[in-house]
């Protein structure tokens, strides 16, 4: 199950979709909107996607993870649009006969998704500043994808209203 959605992510049904009698292990990762990054206080986040390429990239990730790990089922869902604090931005679930492969596959999936899938995050801070976030360096990534030089685009703007969740 691969999805790109503007609606809240139903992580329970996403997790359920990878469960089976063959799977002794199921791992779920949720990426959620965090309020504080160091001193900076986030009011809300805006995710922009290039939907056609993002879906293609997610399907390529599924094919690749199946080649690298003994996974049984894979499910990924990424949300875009305006997200409030605590909202789930991304969910990744994998099942495997044993836990080691499930953890490794899940870690590889979320790391590689963050490096490759064309989705961008714009911070709307509580003080009114906005910022397109630079990619986070991924440690110990097995992906061959290069992480380009960081991009930071700061702009001043008046405080904006938190969107309806």
């Amino acid at each position: 199950m691969i999805a790109l959605t503007q609606q809240p992510i139903d992580f329970a049904s996403l997790t359920e979709s990878v469960r089976s009698h063959q799977a002794g292990a199921v791992v779920l990762f949720l990426g959620t909107v965090r309020e504080f990054t160091g001193e900076a206080r986030t009011a809300w986040l805006e995710y922009e996607a290039f939907p056609e390429m993002a879906m293609a990239a997610l399907h390529r990730l599924e094919a690749e993870v199946r080649g690298r790990f003994s996974v049984i089922e894979v499910a990924m869902s990424h949300r875009y649009g305006k997200l409030a604090l605590g909202d789930i931005a991304v969910a990744v679930a994998v099942s495997s006969p044993h836990r080691a492969q499930a953890f490794e596959a899940g870690r590889w999936l979320i790391d590689t998704l963050k490096e490759n899938v064309p989705i961008w995050k714009k911070e709307h801070y509580a003080d009114g500043r906005t910022e397109w976030l630079q990619p986070e360096p991924v440690k110990d990534s097995r992906s061959a994808a290069a992480i380009p030089v960081a991009w930071t685009f700061l702009s001043e703007s008046s405080p904006e209203i938190v969107p309806d969740a």
Partner: peptide, 12 residues
């Protein structure tokens, strides 16, 4: 071709 140009991605 469908061609696109964009900064490094930052999803997740």
């Amino acid at each position: 071709d469908v061609v696109a140009c964009f900064p490094p991605v930052s999803g997740g």
